[in-house]
């Protein structure tokens, strides 16, 4: 008996991500969750600009490719017109927390009934390793080659904490992909968020810490360790809002 095989909610296309990049894991978690909830046929996904720009090739449902940072606005347009569909947005940190911060904050403030999957790998991956709004203090990037210096580059943005200052969001959680236990927890959070949306509860947001072995200049296994040991210090895991459990 097969106890693990690829979900039908992912297409047969081979993922283009670098070896060991855990983007692929998150794709699988989102796809499996949608399939398990039986929402495949009413799902519309929004792909970002960044490493996940080809996400429209991978998710086996209707997809729109948005301009850089604009995915929450695109999702707003769809969800408001088709409120019974499942609308999910997949964005990286440059897309969501830098160029698209206005769209991010306002979709959350309006309480759009969408699900945002936020991939935080603390770097601009697709363009070759530039500093991101989430780059850790001291972390090297091609545009801060001696490491991020707060005096020059400021501090990383904690998006979950920032969105949790708003009244409207229904569910906000930060999870990680650095080991089996955390991947399973990430799956639970993503599925919960999608379920909340399907129930029409409100805005749901899951930040997922992901590794970037290529631009962190680490072996994939070392990148997982760095994520678990370092990234989680700046970006602590946990539930920041869950109105279903009265967590405001």
């Amino acid at each position: 008996m097969k106890v693990f095989q690829k979900t039908k909610m992912l297409t047969d296309a081979h993922l283009h991500y670098c070896p060991g990049c855990t983007h692929g894991i998150v794709h699988r978690l989102v796809a499996e969750s949608i399939e398990e909830l039986g929402l495949q046929e009413k799902s519309i996904g929004i792909a970002p600009v960044g490493c996940a720009v080809f996400a429209y090739d991978y998710f086996n449902c209707d997809m729109q490719e948005a301009a850089h940072g604009r995915a929450p606005a695109v999702a707003t347009g769809i969800k408001r017109c088709l409120p019974d569909r499942l609308v999910f947005v997949y964005q990286g940190d440059g897309d969501l927390a830098s160029i698209g911060m206005a769209e991010t904050v306002h979709a959350a403030a309006r309480g759009e009934k969408i699900t945002i999957i936020f991939i935080n790998n603390s770097i601009y991956g697709m363009t070759g390793g530039q500093m991101a709004p989430t780059t850790l203090i001291g972390q090297k990037a091609t545009t801060c080659q001696n490491g991020r210096d707060p005096a020059v580059n400021g501090y990383p943005i904690r998006v979950c904490e920032l969105l949790a200052t708003l009244d409207a969001p229904y569910y906000i959680e930060r999870v990680s992909t650095h080991d089996v236990k955390h991947v399973l927890a990430a799956k639970k959070a993503i599925k919960k968020a999608l379920q909340f949306q399907a129930e029409g509860r409100g805005y749901t947001f899951v930040e997922v810490l992901v590794s970037c072995p290529t631009n962190w200049h680490m072996r994939p296994v070392d990148a997982l360790r760095f994520m678990g040991e370092e990234c989680t210090k700046t970006f602590p895991l946990g539930v920041f809002r869950d109105k279903s459990e009265g967590k405001q």
Partner: peptide, 26 residues
Amino acid sequence: GVFVQAESEVAAINMVYGAAGAGIRA
């Protein structure tokens, strides 16, 4: 119908992208 006061003109045109892309006259 749907009316949203967007956070910017940039967001407004992208909401049109989403809605019109979903088949609605926007």
